[in-house]
Design a protein around this nucleic acid. Structure first.
Lengths: 214, 214
DNA sequence: GCATGTGAATTCTTTCACAGCT
DNA sequence: AGCTGTGAAAGAATTCACATGC
């Protein structure tokens, strides 16, 4: 089964991951004044086949023009709609150490439809200080902010040791998605989505890829 | 085909990715004074089946004890050996802005076998300044450092616009692996491995996961 | 002619289920 | 009894190849 407008429930994760890559590439193409692209060209730029590109889109509808390819601007709009980033998501950042502060200053989020509207920490040393134009709030007030600012997503940038404690506060709030930079597996009810980014793991994967050629 | 000591060439990426997760979980278990674990328990903690765990290991050998499970310390050592992180990798960081500086201060790399031994930038404003105990070097001197310090891996934490320019310098050096935080697809000969981490893309994936339940 | 969209074929991954070891 | 290691079966994902449309 693979009809258009599929129940998103059954779209493979790998397809959604590629959607983001297509989006990034299409934005780049448009930036270079390329307004039309074939599945073949788009795929090659990302190391996948044209068939793969076309098949991926069939999960969501028909966006191309036979004989022509895809219009970059249209396809960008479609992918954003699919991913849900055609509107801006207010996001909270938790953990204002090294990494958290860097993420607060990162422009890339804004550009793709995410607005970091509040920053939190557990440390009294940081609470009340200003970072990248935001005043760091006490994690205990997360719930209020979530309600007030309509926050669904949080970026978790705390050390491994602090993760469980912070998760408690998250569970008491209405947050439904966590981008987790803490190098631990979070124990969460499955109504809460998690995407984990472990920086050391990414380097490990790279090391393996490099080492296997020796 | 799936015999022990497989040619790493043909080990699926997904298997290697799980290896890193197993490693992290095993270190956690050992930390909690658990010295032995079954494939079932290890898998459940990560959301995979016991069969999956056992099958993954068969790509590399036989590490378990029937009736008992796996010894955490032994399995940790095996996985590190497989990933190549039983020895420390000297790493260079390129791009000492927001994110780069945060990565320089990140302890998680050291803990998993990576040592950031040098930092580079293109900006004269940053070159010569000290960040996290390292003096920022001119990117033009990368090649010398790579030779002197035996660097194979670099962490690329520059803005999208600077990526191509920096890639030139990387190509002139003997670097064979790039952990790429720039939100662009790098054009590289295939002898150079790339692992890409696009922070905005990770948030997009999360947004999709959250939105599909509405 | 050129490129999409899509069933069918293929290839890859995961799960099953059980023999064999502790 | 308990758990690993592994062929065989099932299930997914990718690629092929071509009918259809511009």
């Amino acid at each position: 089964m693979n009809s258009p407008a599929s129940n998103p429930e059954q779209v493979p994760k790998a397809v959604v991951a590629r959607l983001s890559l297509y989006l990034r590439e299409l934005q780049q193409l448009l930036n270079d004044d390329t307004h039309t692209v074939s599945s073949q060209v788009l795929g090659t730029r990302l190391g996948v086949t044209g068939a793969q590109v076309r098949k991926d889109f069939t999960y969501f509808g028909q966006f191309g023009y036979p004989g022509v390819g895809y219009r970059c601007d249209e396809l960008i709009a479609e992918i954003k709609r699919i991913l849900g980033t055609d509107q801006t998501w207010p996001v909270a950042l938790i953990g204002c150490g090294n990494l958290g502060q860097a993420l607060l200053g990162y422009r890339g989020f804004q550009k793709q439809g995410f607005d970091v509207v509040a920053a939190f920490d557990i440390s009294p040393k940081l609470i009340g200080t200003e970072v990248a134009g935001l005043t760091v709030q006490d994690i205990q007030t997360l719930s209020e902010w979530v309600d007030k600012e309509n926050i669904s997503l949080v970026i978790l940038a705390v050390p491994a040791e602090a993760a469980d404690q912070v998760v408690e506060a998250i569970l008491k709030s209405g947050v439904t998605g966590i981008l987790n930079f803490a190098p631990v597996t979070l124990k969460l009810p499955k109504r809460i989505q998690v995407v984990g980014v472990d920086l050391a793991i990414e380097l490990e994967q790279l090391a393996f890829g490099v080492a296997k050629f020796n």
